[in-house]
Each structure stands twice: as structure tokens, then as C-alpha cells.
């Protein structure tokens, strides 16, 4: 029951982007298409789950005063791991996301969950929390990416349904702000 709650809260009730407004930089930067948003979300999920597990395991070994640098080292290691793995095995996606992968280190969600959840809870709960939060983040990014892709390039998951140029603003940065703003507004409307 409790674990289920931990898992589902990341999707709507405490969604990192849409409710807590954390991690907006990659949200705005990488959601030019559904597939980009989804891969960024999954990369973040990987880091989030791994760092939550490790941090909840070692939380008692770390003196309070150096906990932030320790967490950052742990997070940065996992980010570098996924960075290298993507370079090696997903070169196409790495090319578009390249710049934003190292930035996961400073993504507020990861450090936020480490500090707010993993450092106070057990391994299993932290793992579930990271997974829920990460997938909620990935879902939000994918939907935003899909909306921008449909409007901006008239395609979805790379499939072009009309052979024409879309409304280019939605591929550019201003479109990300428009999309995110209305997305948040809609979620708020139904979250009440």
C-alpha cells in the first residue's frame, strides 16, 4: 500500500515538472520531439533509481556536513555512466541530447529526491520512489515532446503524417515555454 503510494505520487500528485516545477531546464531544452523527451526522461529515471538506492544504502556512513558533496559524487558517477553508455550504444539519441545528459547532475529532481527521500528511507522505498518520480518525469517530458512534435513538425515519434512544415515556434525554445505553461494549467485544472 505504502509502496504503491510512493510509486504513483510521482505521476500526477507530485509530478516533478508539472507540480513541483523541478528540472525545468532539460524539460524545455530536450522536448523537441516525443522520442527525445522520452529518452531524456528514461536517462533521468536510471540516474534517479540508482542514486536513490546507493544513497539510501550509505546514508548512515556519511557524516551530515559532507552529505551534499557525497551525494553529488554518487549522482555524477551515474550520470557519467549513462553518458558513456548512450555514446556507445545510442549514438543517434546522444547526438540530440548530448549537451543535456551531463546536466542531469544538477537536475533538482535527483538531488531533491536524494535529500528529501533516500536519505531518510530504506532501500526498497527509495528505489520505488525514484522509479515513480523518474517515470512521472519521463511521461511528462514525452507528452510535452509529443505535443511539440505534432504542432512543430507535423510528425509523431518520427512518423510524418503531413508532408509540410509545421508551426516552427513549437520546435524552438519559445514553443517549449508555451507548451509547458498550458500543460501545467491543464494539470492544475484537473488536480484540484
Amino acid at each position: 500500500m505504502n509502496n504503491w503510494k510512493n510509486f504513483t505520487k510521482g505521476f500526477i500528485k507530485e509530478n516533478p515538472v508539472l507540480v513541483m516545477l523541478l528540472g525545468c531546464c532539460p524539460t524545455l531544452g530536450t522536448t523537441t520531439s516525443a522520442i527525445n523527451g522520452l529518452s531524456m526522461g528514461l536517462a533521468t529515471t536510471f540516474v534517479l533509481v540508482c542514486s536513490n538506492i546507493v544513497i539510501s544504502l550509505i546514508k548512515n556512513l556519511i557524516p551530515d556536513k559532507v552529505r551534499i558533496p557525497s551525494y553529488i559524487v554518487v549522482i555524477a558517477s551515474f550520470v557519467t555512466v549513462i553518458d558513456l553508455l548512450m555514446q556507445a550504444y545510442l549514438p543517434g539519441i546522444y547526438e540530440t541530447l548530448g549537451l543535456f545528459i551531463p546536466l542531469i547532475v544538477v537536475n533538482c529532481i535527483v538531488l531533491g529526491r536524494a535529500e528529501a527521500f533516500a536519505s531518510k528511507n530504506g532501500v526498497w522505498a527509495s528505489c520505488v520512489d525514484g522509479l515513480g518520480m523518474g517515470l512521472g518525469y519521463a511521461l511528462a517530458l514525452m507528452i510535452l515532446g509529443a505535443v511539440r512534435e505534432i504542432l512543430g513538425s507535423l510528425s509523431i515519434f518520427g512518423w510524418q503524417f503531413i508532408q509540410a512544415d509545421g508551426i516552427l515556434v513549437f520546435v524552438l525554445a519559445p514553443g517549449a515555454f508555451f507548451g509547458l505553461a498550458y500543460f501545467i494549467a491543464v494539470v492544475r485544472r484537473f488536480n484540484k
Binding site: D165, I167, L168, V169, F170, L172, P174
Partner: peptide, 8 residues
Amino acid sequence: VFLLISFP
């Protein structure tokens, strides 16, 4: 401006 950027 929206149109200018969207449909250059």
C-alpha cells in the same frame, strides 16, 4: 511575431 517565427 509568432507567425514570423513559425512561418518565416
